[in-house]
Simulated assay, not measured.
Amino acid sequence: MKVLLFVSLFLNALFLGYGGLVASQMDGINHAQAASMQKSAAYYFTKKSIFEHAELYDVDKIFIGDSMTDYGEFQEYFPDEVVLNRGIRNDVAKGVFHRIEEVVNRNAKEAYLMIGVNDIRHGENRKDFEKNIRAIVQSFEGTGTKLFIQSILPVNNGLYGKAVSNKKVLQFNDLLRTIATEKGIEYIDLYAYFLDEHGQLDERFTVDGLHLNGEGYRMWIDRLHRQT
């Protein structure tokens, strides 16, 4: 039964494009890795279904992304506005694109996109990442929503390991900035505000070297207030 569930979730993921990165890593995986991929796919489709069945429209802000967004309490950060969180942990740009219609249909005044660290972590090439970001951006064209593209945040390799390099983060951020400039979209550069003196994600803002703690989210929201 568990094997059938994994196969079902995996085939659904491939159909929607979310499983593209997973498929490239199928050879030689062990049971623990397979279980982890099963959980990621299940979480993605569970959250996607919940989002699609929500009935709130014409909101003030909507945040879109991966775990960095998923873990944030954005409604609490903006108590005088109606704010939706459309973050899904472990998501990638392709995964966001395949659920972006629901986001666009919420008709938010402002949408804040932060995505890319998992693309880097899974070895996605810049060309495919760019294609998916451009598709996301195009989805908002002709709507009443003002889209903001946020930079990917740095990591702390001493805490998190070497799965993501800040050199690669900067390369992907350059691509995000280029797309934003071309499309006349405001680019919010958060990267520098989270660095320590060694060019790493400051330990004040993280527990595991990748995700933000409470102080990290405070810094993020403070920068949004200052830059938007």
Results as ranks from 00 to 15, higher is better:
70 D>N: 09
184 G>R: 06
193 Y>P: 00
191 Y>Q: 06
227 Q>M: 15
149 I>G: 02
96 V>L: 05
209 G>D: 03
21 L>Q: 08
219 M>N: 09
99 R>D: 06
132 N>R: 12
49 S>L: 08
42 A>Q: 10
105 N>S: 10
87 G>L: 09
105 N>E: 10
66 D>H: 11
165 S>Q: 07
208 D>H: 09
91 D>K: 03
46 T>W: 07
72 G>D: 08
44 Y>T: 00
41 A>G: 04
111 A>C: 14
85 N>P: 04
55 E>R: 13
57 Y>K: 13
69 T>D: 04
84 L>S: 04
79 P>W: 08
210 L>S: 01
30 N>W: 02
144 G>Y: 04
69 T>N: 07
179 I>H: 12
143 T>L: 01
204 R>A: 05
122 H>W: 13
32 A>T: 12
184 G>Q: 08
192 A>R: 12
88 I>Q: 04
198 H>Q: 15
183 K>E: 15
187 Y>L: 12
3 V>F: 12
12 N>A: 13
71 Y>H: 11
228 T>M: 10
147 L>N: 05
98 H>N: 15
19 G>W: 02
190 L>M: 14
11 L>F: 13
114 M>C: 15
14 L>K: 07
155 V>S: 00
73 E>C: 13
48 K>Y: 00
40 S>A: 12
122 H>P: 07
137 V>W: 12
198 H>R: 15
54 A>D: 13
180 A>I: 00
132 N>Q: 15
125 N>I: 09
228 T>L: 08
84 L>Q: 05
224 L>I: 11
151 S>W: 00
152 I>S: 03
115 I>W: 01
9 L>V: 02
203 E>T: 14
222 D>N: 14
157 N>W: 01
124 E>M: 15
213 N>K: 03
144 G>D: 09
116 G>T: 10
220 W>H: 06
